[in-house]
Design a protein around this nucleic acid. Sequence first.
DNA 1: GTCAAACCTCTTGTATACAAGAATAATGAA
DNA 2: TTCATTATTCTTGTATACAAGAGGTTTGAC
Lengths: 226, 226
Amino acid sequence: MMRAMGTRIADTIRERIEQMIVTGEFADGERLDEVKLAEQFGVSRTPLREAFQSLAASGLLTLEARRGAFIRHPDFVELVEMFEVMAELEAMCGFRAARRVSEQQMRDIGRTIETCEAAIAMGDFDEYYRENETFHHLLYEASGNSFLAREATRLHKRLKPYRRMQLRVNGRMPQSMREHRAIHAALEQSDGKAAAATLRQHVAIQGERFNDLMASYRQMAPRKTG
Amino acid sequence: MMRAMGTRIADTIRERIEQMIVTGEFADGERLDEVKLAEQFGVSRTPLREAFQSLAASGLLTLEARRGAFIRHPDFVELVEMFEVMAELEAMCGFRAARRVSEQQMRDIGRTIETCEAAIAMGDFDEYYRENETFHHLLYEASGNSFLAREATRLHKRLKPYRRMQLRVNGRMPQSMREHRAIHAALEQSDGKAAAATLRQHVAIQGERFNDLMASYRQMAPRKTG
DNA sequence: GTCAAACCTCTTGTATACAAGAATAATGAA
DNA sequence: TTCATTATTCTTGTATACAAGAGGTTTGAC
């Protein structure tokens, strides 16, 4: 059987299942069958269960005692709550980055903005999406607080499926780019408060975006099975 | 062999090891021996490994591939970083609680403050410590954001061993109580900004507290073994 | 026909067996 | 004596076997 040498099977499995979850491959309430997945990946249940543990701990799925592992999409309220925390974490990153960001990091951030804009012009949404992610990760790093950066990354990943469905909303991308530029400018001027405020607004679900999210949420997760 | 019926062994084990870690039972860099712990608890390695996974995910220990599970106390820089994030999360809770806190919750919060003060007067440090924890948990709940509350609780738990060593510092407890009262007052007046600012200052490591923490940290974790 | 209880099946939880990588001890050469 | 290399042991990672709870199904009573 295929063995990825040198690395733990459990970790590989975790990565793969995480990808599947994050790209929305499972429906809400769906149960992940241990034996089915095990033979699908060509491994035993053991590394699979380890992967489940790990995924459950990051909140990507829920383990119910003697019932199994379930995909539990956050309900709408919880989703808004999560974006609320994400907004604050990013604001915090921005505030700190304004003092601590290096010139190299500023160049990197500037580059992602340009690449993003080019991607929009070419209609390359995947590229836009990727570079948008890079922008935010660079920001987390620039905060100078590695613990904060890790936590922000974790939540960012967890929100991935729901951020994705937002991007396609009409007119969102140009607006988003304006905000990226504003953040960049605030960092350049070492204006922590401005960076924080812009980021908070950039990420938070409020005003029209609340309705946009609600609409696409209804489409994506029409009903809780659990 | 003893079986805790109705509940998963792995979860029980997790709780117990978590307690051991949080009360500082393990030295920094120490490796947790699977087989030793397994026979100590009278179970097989399987639930133990599940507990390790779970604990690793909350950051309480580190799994190194084919090396084992290690206690890795954060170094001083990381500890300050963590408190920085904790301060911001609590500030966030306070800000939101100022709008959303219920009258019942206000009464509960008020009660913990009184119990705390009584405990100080009687020299009952354990009681003080417990009620102090309750105060903060009530605050998390009062934020009205259950996701935020969970995240705050998680980090709070992770910082437990290091907060403990701070409390004994001379004069810290009365100062802490004054801050609790100020927070309570800010909530009563629905002054979110004041509540946030006081909490940020209450939790953050700055000024004299920086030196206090550094001193007690040196005492507690004199050297990294890894 | 409907409801309840016992039975069976299916899935998870735990234990044990086996494989393979790391650490360490032992052996030999310089 | 010291260093390198090999052999041995120990520990983790994975697979499989076994136990037990949850869910569904059949059977029986009303």
